[in-house]
Amino acid sequence: MLEDGLSYPMEGDSWIARILIGGVLLFLSFLVVPIFIFQGYLLRVLGDTVRGESEPPEWDDWGGLVVDGLKATVVAFVYSIIPIAVIGGIGVVLLGAGSAAGGDGGGILAGFGLLTVLLAIPVFFLIYLLVPAALANMAVEGSLGAAFDLNLLKDVVFTADYLVAVLMPIVVGIAVNIVTQVLAITIVGLLLVPFITFYGQVAVFRMFGLAFANQTDGSSGGATGTTATV
């Protein structure tokens, strides 16, 4: 899976042009719209991977990419920002109430508040597992509602094979982050950062797609329990 993910962005005859376009979009991300185009492209990578395509998608149907990028943003928001905001809000309220109350009762309230905040750690990890699978299912089905098909997602996400498979992108993400930090030291290197970032993100989403596909039949029809190859 790791080898496949790293080689995937360079598959096809037009891979240089593809990476150049992706890097330019990230360079122009301050304009906001390019970010949605980029997110839409990553969603397309997921869908193509699950369907068994061996080469990255081309840059076409730009309007569709924007729409898909907006959908991906909505899914990420629902799965991540809302739960974290709720947990953080409850934790802050309990900590504040405990501090204001004082005494043993206040200490208990503050303790519950701290525990609530600590819950964010496993929640973050659960989000990391859920979001790629939700996006992959949406990419295959072509509908926003497919991202919230919890019956399918639980059969995919809560498997040992999927867990092992989605740990690989963490390795790639850390490596890409180190490379970009080193490159950012010089002006020339800084100009290369968007292109390296695009390459890394495409590789990561390829691996997310493979992880999802290995647990399904290549569609959203249901989990198969197929063992992932790492």
Rank of each mutant, 00 (worst) to 15 (best):
L2T: 09
L6M: 13
S7H: 07
S7D: 12
P9R: 00
M10L: 14
S14C: 00
I16R: 12
I19S: 03
G22K: 01
G23W: 08
G23I: 04
L26C: 09
F27D: 01
L31G: 03
L31C: 10
V32H: 06
F36A: 14
I37Q: 05
I37K: 05
Y41T: 05
R44K: 11
R44S: 14
D48R: 12
V50C: 07
S54Q: 14
P56C: 00
P56E: 00
W59P: 15
G64M: 06
V66L: 12
V67C: 00
K71A: 09
A72G: 12
V74I: 14
F77K: 04
V78W: 06
Y79V: 02
I81D: 01
I82P: 01
P83T: 12
G88W: 15
G88F: 14
G89S: 09
G89K: 08
G91Q: 11
V92C: 04
V93L: 13
G96A: 11
A97R: 13
G98Q: 08
G98E: 07
G98S: 11
S99G: 15
S99N: 14
A100G: 11
G102L: 11
G106W: 08
L109I: 08
L109Q: 13
A110K: 11
A110N: 07
F112M: 13
F112I: 15
T116R: 06
V117Q: 05
V117G: 01
V117L: 15
A120F: 04
I121Q: 00
P122V: 15
P122A: 15
F125V: 15
L126D: 05
L129C: 10
L130F: 14
V131S: 02
V131Y: 02
A133Y: 09
A134F: 07
N137C: 02
M138A: 15
V140S: 06
E141Y: 03
G142K: 10
G142R: 05
S143Y: 01
L144R: 06
A146K: 05
A146T: 02
F148C: 11
D149N: 15
N151D: 15
N151W: 11
L153N: 08
K154S: 14
D155W: 10
V156D: 02
F158G: 01
F158M: 08
L163G: 05
L163M: 09
V166L: 05
I170D: 00
V172S: 03
V172W: 01
V176T: 14
V176E: 00
Q181V: 11
Q181C: 03
I185E: 02
I185C: 00
I185H: 03
T186H: 05
V193Y: 09
P194V: 04
P194G: 02
F195R: 03
I196E: 00
V202H: 08
A203M: 10
V204Y: 07
R206T: 12
M207P: 09
F208T: 07
A211Q: 08
N214S: 12
Q215W: 09
D217P: 00
G218R: 11
S220G: 13
G221W: 13
G222W: 12
A223N: 04
A223Q: 07
A223C: 01
T229D: 09
